[in-house]
Design a protein around this nucleic acid. Sequence first.
DNA 1: TATTGTTATACTCTATAACTATA
DNA 2: TATAGTTATAGAGTATAACAATA
Lengths: 163, 163
Amino acid sequence: MAERAQYEELVRQFSAFGAVKRELGRIMPAECPGGSAAVLTLLGRHGDMRMSKLAELLAVDMSVTSRHVAHVVARGWIERSPDPADKRSRILRLTPAGHAQLDELSRRTTEVLAERLSDWTDEEVGQLTDLMARLRESFDCRPAARAAAPPAFERTTRTPAST
Amino acid sequence: MAERAQYEELVRQFSAFGAVKRELGRIMPAECPGGSAAVLTLLGRHGDMRMSKLAELLAVDMSVTSRHVAHVVARGWIERSPDPADKRSRILRLTPAGHAQLDELSRRTTEVLAERLSDWTDEEVGQLTDLMARLRESFDCRPAARAAAPPAFERTTRTPAST
DNA sequence: TATTGTTATACTCTATAACTATA
DNA sequence: TATAGTTATAGAGTATAACAATA
């Protein structure tokens, strides 16, 4: 249990973190803003999935997910096939062009990070990664998709039905 | 020097971090969005300053700073006085109402963090804070405002003059 | 009646460019 | 001519609400 001053300092770092993300965003391909990059990354990492699953992984509302996906589909990086098991759903899958784009994203971010973090040790990079992952879990933004033990209460990834 | 997979994982955490910030933002007072909170926090921490200085600390363009400041001034939380030394400049200062608002912000964020991070040790909170601060420095989003050694080249906090 | 996904609308944050008033 | 700050405009991200199609 930390003290108030410590929390305030942490919040200050949260607030200022946007600058890092923007800096990283500047080197991304023009047609591929952050939202699209996140979609490609998660599909590459977790394989084909439905919209609802992607929304959960992105930790944003499904309406937002729908927009990002539409943008990515329009550029031919993923395809939406109907789900034979449930005609309301659509399965998302990376196309070859999507894989290529994903490689390019990875190449660029790796290049930038290798340069900017050249004086960081492996262990420090790992520490930051772990702490940020744990932070997300502590905030319960997403149940961390742990295989076992489904969450006691459903996390909402969409606007609740109003009726 | 880390490896590609490590960097990719780190970038994934960067991308997902937005969810934490949004979660924290939800408990803020309605009239005080993130931009306003940042302005108040920096003024409280560093004391009275000019627009350009604030823009540097926020690590955003001065046009953005101007908007945030206007919002905060409109709510009576800070005042803009002319700078006697340079009539182009304006000095920003927290009003009593601004101090009160700042206290409220601090109270709320501390409360939320104390709850969410209840199983974090002091040391872990400090580690995350330090690593995020170092990350910012490594990205050179801002020269970290270290007293000595002014940066060799001026960091731009505004749109360059087009002429 | 409930769920999956889409679209319309609105709000926040940001950057670029043009403009003003001073230096 | 250069700098401090403002404003207008545009783009990205997000949430809420209403809607269509299917369970």
